[in-house]
Amino acid sequence: MKRFLTIILFMAIYLPGVMAQGNRDFMRETGKIYVVVGVILLIFVGIVAYLVRIERKLTKLEHQLKEEKQ
């Protein structure tokens, strides 16, 4: 969870700087539409990260159950 949080924070803070390099500011072009794309991506990545976390816990639980049966 922490790692995912770091990735999300990194994306939000550093990505704009990376994108702004060069003469043109990619994010500010075409009426700042890429800000919306970025926001949707962040939400998607965040929700998937949380689902991955639940899945990992489930996998661990499944292993525990299997060991018990043996």
Partner: peptide
């Protein structure tokens, strides 16, 4: 916990929007 997930997402998306 899920509410907190949405809170973090709201804060982070807000920061991206605020930057521009």
């Amino acid at each position: 916990e899920t509410g907190l997930l949405f809170g973090v997402l709201g804060l982070v998306t807000g920061m991206l929007w605020a930057n521009y």
